[in-house]
């Protein structure tokens, strides 16, 4: 991670779209009126969803919406690395996990592909359609190596599948998220080995519950 700064080039203004604004109001309504700044993180998410990133005028708009000082919004947006302070690729933002399990399973190869197809890390590609980043653990180690692209996890990647996915995004397609090794979620390769009895799922193994666990007072030994 490096020092996070606001982008040098910023739009002149920002306006909440109608949908974003409606969602903001939903979040704000969850908190007492004098504590509405609690909604700052969800609203930053919404703004990022709307704009693709968090431009500076949006930070001020959020501060004004929530009645908090500008600097407090800046503190939050610079603290959390999931908030993009610079414009990102319009087709795909690729976040390759580089933490140990993924690294051992070949995330270095994925990054090489990204570098050759898109360009340097953390930089918007020349055509403005792609950005790739190396991020810390995304919590899908069992499917390593993996990358988050826009909102979805793409797992069990290889250099070839990674290249194919980038090409698909470039061609305007929407590649399927999930495992690219032909398995269902994080099941073992070749299919599930446990809990395979069909009776577990048709209701026949179920028994009526007589008492709820821990519902009786504990018996004190005499």
């Amino acid at each position: 991670m490096s020092v996070r700064r606001l982008a040098k080039i910023q739009p002149d203004s920002f306006a909440f779209s109608k949908e974003t604004r409606a969602k903001c109001d939903w979040w704000i309504a969850k908190y007492p009126a004098d504590r509405r700044q609690s909604a700052v993180i969800p609203i930053l998410w919404l703004v990022q969803k709307q704009e693709g990133w968090c431009p500076e005028p949006a930070l001020r708009a959020i501060a004004e919406l929530l009645g908090m000082p500008y600097i407090r919004v800046l503190e939050v947006v610079t603290f959390y690395t999931m908030f993009m302070l610079e414009p990102v690729g319009s087709a795909a933002l690729i976040q390759v996990c580089g933490t140990t399990p993924c690294m051992l399973r070949g995330s270095g190869d994925l990054m090489k592909v990204c570098k050759s197809k898109i360009g340097p890390k953390d930089t918007l590609s020349a055509d403005g359609r792609f950005t790739w980043q190396e991020v810390e653990c995304l919590g899908a180690c069992v499917n390593a190596p993996m990358a988050q692209i826009n909102d979805y996890y793409f797992e069990d990647l290889t250099a070839e599948t990674m290249g194919q996915i980038i090409d698909d995004f470039a061609a305007g397609k929407r590649p399927e998220p999930g495992s690219y090794a032909g398995r269902h979620t994080s099941e073992p390769m070749g299919g599930a080995l446990t809990l395979t009895d069909a009776a577990l799922y048709d209701g026949s193994a179920a028994k009526p519950i007589k008492t709820l666990p821990n519902s009786e007072p504990a018996k004190v030994p005499a």
Binding site: R4, E56, E75
Partner: peptide, 19 residues
């Protein structure tokens, strides 16, 4: 006058004012 804040985090934390 809440103008000063601490931005970023960890090793990169910096004290600054808004812009």
């Amino acid at each position: 006058v809440p103008d000063i804040g601490m931005i970023s985090r960890g090793e990169d934390a910096e004290i600054t004012t808004y812009l």
